[in-house]
Design a binder for these strands. Structure first.
Length: 491
RNA sequence: GGGCCGUUAACUCAGUUGGUAGAGUAUCGGCCUUUUAAGCCGAGAGUCGCAGGUUCGAGUCCUGCACGGCCCA
C-alpha cells in the first residue's frame, strides 16, 4: 500500500512535468517567514489588512489540505510557524488551479498573495501565485494524532519535527538554552575553547571509553569521556577562565538518562573555589529558566520544581543519614557500610573501600529523593581523584554535585593542583584498575608534568546539558532532547 | 545481562472463547468557492514484526529470534 501511495505521487509528479512544472527548482525567494507574519499582523483587523495592499511571498510545507471543488484551504508551515492559505480558481485562473490540484500534503511550495481574515477571523494568505518548490513522494503521518510510535520518532526524527509541535519546540528550546549558557559565561570573561575529542589517555572522569585507531600515527586513540584534563592544561597555560560545550562519549548502557554521546559544559575559573561555582550555578540556571521559559517555577513529569535561589545545601555524609535513612551505627563503621551497600545490591569488589560504598548508597537512597535543586557537598576522596582535599578533613574533597528532579545535573570542585597528591590519587586509581575496575582513572604523567609547572588555584564544573534540557522542557527521556539518539540498526 | 510489556493498512488504533482481518485519518473517484479533525456519496488498500510448533483451523495458544519501551543489575 505504501508503494501504491508513492506510485500515485509519482504519477502526479509526471503530470506536473508534462505541464512544464519543475519538481525541484531553487529560484524562489520568500520575502517573509511565517513567524514574522504572525508577529506583525497577528492582531491586525480585516479592514487594516485590506488597506495594506502588500504582497507577501512565503515558502513552506503543506501540512493540511481542505478542497472544495474550485477552491481550497491549506495550512503550510516553515521553520517559524504555520499559516493558512486560500486558493481560488477565480484568483489563480483555471490553468494554475489545475496545477494546484496536483499538489499533495507534504509538498513544499512558494506562495505569494495578500493577507485577509476569514469568516472565523483566521489570518490567511489569499494566494495570487504559487510555485511547487519540492515534490514530496511519501505520505506524512496522520494530522490529528501525529507520529506517536517512539521508535519511528527517533529513527525518522525529521517526521517527528514536521508533525509533532512539542518535539520541534523542545529542540528550539535546547538551542536557546545552549546559546544562553554560552552568553552567560562569555559575559563573565570565560573563553570558549575546543580540546581534543580523541585522546591517548581517556581521563577526566570515571567511565569506559570508546576505542579507535589512528592509522598514520599507528596508535590507539580513545573518544574522550571528558575534556577536563585538557581544559586544566589551559589553566596552566594562563587562560584563567575557560569553557567548552561539546560531546563526551562513554561506552556504557543506554537508558532514560544516558546516551553514549552526550553534551557537556565544562568551565574552569582560576582563583575561585567550589563555593564560588555553586553561587555561579545558582545564578545561571534560574536566569536561564527565566529567559527561556519565562519562569523559575517548572513542572517536571508532574513534580513542581522551584528553581528560585538560594538552593538547599546538604553534606554528603549527612544526607545519607537524614535523607537516605542510613543509621549512625552503619555510617561510623566502614565494614558495616560496605556490607549494607552490598545488601542493597551494589557490586563492590574486594579491596574497594568505604568511599565507593558510600557513593553507591548515596546513588540508591539519596539521589532519587533530591527533587528540588540541591547541592550535595563533601564527597569522599576515593571517588574524586581530581578534586582538592578539604583542609579540615582530608578524607573528603571540596566537591559538590547538583541534583534536580532526582538527576545529577552538575559536578564541580576546587581543583587538585598539587602534583604529588595528584600522582598519589592516580596510583590509588591504578590499584582499583588492578582489581578489575574498568572505570578507574588512568594515570596521566603528561598531565602531572603540566601540574608541576603550576596550575593556579582553580575551581571547575561540568553541567550535563542534555539533562538540564530534559528538566527545563519536561522531557521524560534523554532521547527526547537528542535529535538523533542511538538505536540499534534495523534488521 | 535479567524481568515485564509492545509490534495488526502509510499514520492512530480496535480485534471477544482459536473459526472469512476492522474503524478513523490519509489515498483514489464523484459533488462542493470562507474551510479548519470541512461535509456528503462511492472505492481501493494487510508478509497481523520474523521463523518454527500445536491444531481440521492461529492476529489470537506455545517456542525461538529481531526491534522498541519500562524496570532491575
Amino acid at each position: 500500500m505504501e508503494e501504491k501511495l508513492i506510485q500515485q505521487r509519482k504519477e502526479k509528479a509526471k503530470k506536473l512535468l508534462e505541464k512544464g512544472v519543475k519538481l525541484y527548482p531553487n529560484d524562489f525567494k520568500p520575502t517573509h517567514r511565517v513567524g514574522e507574519i504572525w508577529a506583525q499582523y497577528g492582531e491586525t483587523s480585516e479592514e487594516e489588512l485590506l488597506a495594506l495592499k502588500k504582497t507577501f511571498c512565503l515558502a513552506g510545507r503543506i501540512v493540511a489540505l481542505r478542497r472544495f471543488g474550485r477552491a481550497a484551504f491549506i495550512h503550510f508551515q516553515d521553520a517559524t510557524g504555520k499559516l493558512q492559505a486560500y486558493f481560488k480558481q477565480d484568483v489563480l485562473g483555471k490553468e494554475k488551479y489545475e496545477i494546484f490540484k496536483l499538489l499533495d500534503i507534504g509538498d513544499i511550495i512558494g506562495l505569494c498573495g495578500h493577507l485577509f481574515r476569514t469568516k472565523t477571523g483566521e489570518l490567511t494568505l489569499l494566494v495570487e501565485d504559487f510555485r511547487l518548490l519540492t515534490k514530496s513522494l511519501r505520505p506524512l503521518p496522520e494530522k490529528y494524532h501525529g507520529l506517536k510510535d517512539i521508535e519511528l520518532r527517533y529513527r525518522q526524527r525529521y517526521l517527528d519535527l514536521i508533525v509533532n509541535p512539542i518535539s520541534k519546540k523542545r529542540f528550539l528550546k535546547r538551542t536557546k538554552i545552549i546559546q544562553f549558557v554560552r552568553q552567560f559565561l562569555t559575559d563573565r570573561e570565560f573563553l570558549e575553547v575546543e580540546t581534543p575529542m580523541m585522546q591517548v589517555i581517556p581521563g577526566g572522569a570515571l567511565a569506559k571509553p570508546f576505542e579507535t585507531y589512528h592509522n598514520a600515527l599507528g596508535i590507539t586513540l580513545y573518544l574522550r569521556i571528558a575534556p577536563e584534563l585538557y581544559l586544566k592544561r589551559l589553566l596552566v597555560g594562563g587562560f584563567d577562565r575557560v569553557f567548552e560545550i561539546n560531546r563526551n562519549f562513554r561506552n556504557e548502557g543506554i537508558d532514560i538518562d544516558h546516551n553514549p554521546e552526550f553534551t557537556m559544559l565544562e568551565f574552569y575559573q582560576a582563583y575561585a573555589t567550589y563555593e564560588d561555582l555553586m553561587a555561579l550555578t545558582e545564578e545561571l540556571i534560574p536566569q536561564l529558566a527565566d529567559k527561556v521559559l519565562g519562569t523559575k517555577k517548572i513542572t517536571y513529569q508532574g513534580e513542581e520544581i522551584d528553581l528560585t535561589p538560594p538552593w538547599r545545601r546538604v553534606d554528603f555524609r549527612g544526607s545519607l543519614k537524614e535523607i537516605g535513612q542510613v543509621s549512625e551505627e552503619i555510617l561510623k563503621d566502614p565494614e558495616a557500610t560496605i556490607a549494607y551497600a552490598k545488601k542493597l545490591g551494589a557490586k563492590l569488589r574486594p579491596g574497594e573501600g568505604v568511599g565507593k560504598a558510600l557513593a553507591k548508597l548515596f546513588e540508591k537512597l539519596v539521589e532519587p529523593k533530591l527533587i528540588q535543586p540541591t547541592f550535595v557537598v563533601g564527597y569522599p576522596v576515593e571517588v574524586s581523584p581530581l578534586a582538592r582535599r578539604n583542609d579540615e578533613n582530608p578524607e573528603i574533597t571540596d566537591r559538590f554535585e547538583l541534583f534536580i528532579a532526582g538527576k545529577e545535573v552538575a559536578n564541580g570542585f576546587s581543583e587538585l593542583n598539587d602534583p604529588e597528591d595528584q600522582r598519589q590519587r592516580f596510583l590509588q586509581q591504578m590499584e582499583m584498575r588492578k582489581i578489575g575496575d574498568e572505570e578507574a582513572h588512568p594515570i596521566d604523567e603528561d598531565y602531572i608534568v603540566a601540574l608541576e609547572y603550576g596550575m593556579p588555584p582553580t575551581a571547575g564544573e561540568g553541567i550535563g546539558i542534555d539533562r538540564l534540557v530534559m528538566i527545563l522542557t519536561d522531557a521524560p527521556s534523554i532521547r527526547d532532547v537528542i535529535l538523533f539518539p542511538h538505536l540499534r540498526p534495523e534488521k
